[in-house]
């Protein structure tokens, strides 16, 4: 069960609220919805790659990440792995079983989620700033970490009640900047269409 919840956080800690006292989390039976803007900067490209869309997070079931612009991509993440679809056609499928790295990332982010600094500390140097209403957490891999398994320079999470912003800097200085908005924590199940997506990805 814990494992499944950790999975949900793969999308760079969509709801990771690091300050232990403040963390409200998403409980089973609750569904978190919101919008995102992702800005990817790759050296040598004319302009940043910007995509926008919305997401649905259902603890114990998975995460649906729907990119609407510049074109529709649906990414579904479950305990079994990651599946990407374009126009109803599956383009990518990554199995957790074959990519233990994915599973380990969940563990780390899960540690961040539950405030288990000790566990995070085994892979990252963790710096915490701000207060309960406006906090910032910076994760830096230890010196000497395997660059194949840990291709990040740093990961920064910022938020208050919810996670508002994630910044990932890769070793080659390419970066991703994710900004979340309009987040609502509701009760009830995902819609039938969403449930079907999660089922398909969980195969």
């Amino acid at each position: 069960m814990r494992r499944r919840r950790l999975l949900l956080v793969l999308a760079a800690g969509t709801f990771a609220t690091a300050a232990r006292a403040q963390y409200r989390g998403v409980a089973p039976g609750q569904v978190l919805r919101g919008n995102f803007m992702q800005e990817r900067r790759i050296k040598g490209f004319d302009r940043p790659l910007i995509s926008t869309g919305d997401f649905v997070l259902a603890p114990g079931q998975g995460l649906i990440w729907r990119t609407e612009k510049p074109f529709a991509i649906v990414t579904v993440i479950t305990a079994k792995g990651l599946v990407q679809e374009v126009g109803g056609t599956e383009t990518t499928r990554l199995a957790t079983a074959r990519l233990p790295f994915l599973g380990r990332l969940y563990d780390l982010l899960g540690a961040a989620l539950s405030g288990d600094w000790h566990k995070l500390g085994s892979q990252f140097q963790v710096t915490q700033q701000g207060d309960a209403t406006q906090w910032e957490l910076t994760l830096v891999p230890h010196a000497g970490a395997d660059p194949v398994a840990m291709p990040f320079r740093s990961i920064t999470l910022r938020g208050g009640t919810f996670l508002d912003e994630v910044r990932i800097v890769r070793l080659d200085d390419d970066s991703d900047h994710l900004v979340f908005s309009g987040q609502t924590l509701g009760t009830g199940e995902p819609s039938a269409a969403e449930a079907a997506l999660l089922r398909e990805a969980g195969k």
Partner: peptide
Amino acid sequence: ETLETRALSQVFGLIGMADVRLLR
């Protein structure tokens, strides 16, 4: 076109799988 779509989804997708040296 399925190969193009796959490449686009990898470039824009949630988890970036491309770097410029490879893409070029």
